[in-house]
Simulated assay, not measured.
Amino acid sequence: METLPNCDRWSELPMDLLRCVFERLSFVDFHRAKMVCSTWYLCSKQTLGPRYGSPLLIMSQEEGSYRLYNPEEDRVYEAKSNYRFLGSSGKWFLIVDSRSDLYILNVFSSERIRLPPLETVKSSLYKLERLGGDKGLFIEREATFSKGLCLATKDLRAVLWVDEKKRDYVVVWGFEACPYLRFWKKGDVRYREISTHGDVRYQSLNNMVLKGYSLYVQTEWSSIRHLVLSGRDIFEDVWTIYWPQMRTDVLFGTGVYKVSSYSNKMAVTTSGELLMVKTKAYESTSERHRMFHLYKRLDNKFIEVDSLGDEALFLDLGITVPADHTLGIEPNSIYFSCDEHFVHKRVSCIDICVYNLATKTIKRFPSLSNLKLKDAQWFLPS
């Protein structure tokens, strides 16, 4: 029998043998293997591999490690990382490392794109200064004042959009305690500031959606701003609309249930319509339930709707996508993971599930029940 090449010559393996190996790999292993070398990548293109584009979960554990979960395989993959994941677009994730530097990371190939330092902000009003070493602390000062606001990268919130074909990138970030947003596009050498128009301050940087160059952000007084970031030097305000605050105790069924957790999220449909989604977890002495309510923007108001049609809503991403049974994307369903992501001030309610709007039933994943999770996010690798 002919002996196999040495381990440093994996690229010389016979193509027929490689194809046999690739056909037996799981989804994640398949995409890891095709990054070994150019020969393996070419072989992956000639192989009928696992279905591409099925929903996946990235999960953060208490000790700081991460895992990937594929619901179709019902398999958890270990991932050693010191990164903190801020947002995702396809297989690309926006991450911050232990030095408080931002990167865009391909979660399968480990390809990284380094972004400018956080303090590289183009602004005539505010200055962001890094406070030494790996402390993850910054001071933001107004131009005319010596005192400033102390900020930490654990309070950093961000969204990401990647155009895979054009290799174009857009990033929007801000600190939880600071009402100012910054954005970056491919080719920029520094971040640009989004004006707050005087009295308009941002309520929570957890409630942002970025789809292409369109940014949707909720403000402190419950208005929603739609901005377009495609200009080279400026951004454009498209519209602002009011969204009322939600109650924390509501009637449910035949009695009053205590709301144990609730959230208020935005999403954008495939056709570009804005959705607001209220989700509440109810508890009584005998049961726990979760409900979702959808509201669609119509002119300058919101109307409640009861269906997504032949689309699925990924609430973590803030987008809807066409349903696809071959990829396990269920129609008229909401993919949900937790109320708020990476919130260190309180414990987030982790509840990984798929909610069917037509039947009002919830599908959960028992194999994840024993994992001590700090956070989880759905993402779509395609």
Rank of each mutant, 00 (worst) to 15 (best):
D316L: 04
F302C: 03
G328C: 08
F314S: 07
L313S: 00
A312R: 14
I303E: 07
S307E: 14
T320Q: 09
L317N: 04
E311S: 14
D324W: 13
D310H: 11
K301R: 13
G328T: 05
E330T: 02
Y295R: 10
L315W: 03
D316K: 13
K301Q: 06
N332A: 09
I334F: 02
D310E: 12
L308M: 07
H325Q: 13
D306I: 06
G309R: 12
E304R: 05
I334S: 08
Y295K: 08
F302M: 02
E304I: 00
L317A: 15
V321Q: 12
V305W: 03
L327W: 03
D316V: 01
I303Q: 04
K296H: 02
L317D: 07
N332P: 08
Y335S: 14
V305P: 10
D310F: 06
H325I: 15
I319H: 13
D299R: 13
S307I: 01
H325D: 15
L315P: 09
G309Y: 06
I334G: 09
D324M: 10
E304K: 05
L308A: 01
P322M: 08
I334M: 06
K301E: 01
E304P: 02
N300H: 13
F314Q: 08
I334T: 04
L315E: 13
V305M: 03
T326K: 10
L327E: 02
N300R: 05
R297L: 02
A323T: 08
D324F: 13
D310P: 01
H325K: 11
V321W: 04
A323Q: 04
F314G: 05
S333L: 04
H325Y: 08
A312L: 12
N332Y: 12
S333V: 07
Y295A: 14
T326E: 13
L315T: 07
S333H: 09
D324P: 03
D316C: 06
E311R: 00
Y295E: 12
P331Q: 04
L298K: 12
L327S: 02
G318M: 10
Y335I: 12
K301W: 01
I329Q: 05
T326A: 15
N300C: 09
I319V: 15
R297F: 00
L294C: 03
I303D: 08
F314Y: 08
I319E: 15
V321C: 13
G328N: 12
N300A: 09
L327A: 06
R297S: 00
G328K: 11
T326F: 09
G309T: 13
D310Y: 05
H325V: 15
D299S: 07
A312Q: 11
H325C: 15
D316A: 03
L317Y: 01
D299I: 02
D310G: 06
K296Q: 13
L298D: 09
T326Q: 11
G318H: 09
D306W: 14
I334N: 06
D299G: 01
E330C: 01
L317W: 06
V321H: 11
D316Q: 11
I319D: 11
D324C: 14
I334H: 07
L315I: 15
E330R: 15
I334R: 06
T326D: 14
G309A: 05
G318E: 07
L317S: 09
F314H: 10
L308T: 03
Y295N: 08
I329E: 04
G328R: 12
I334W: 01
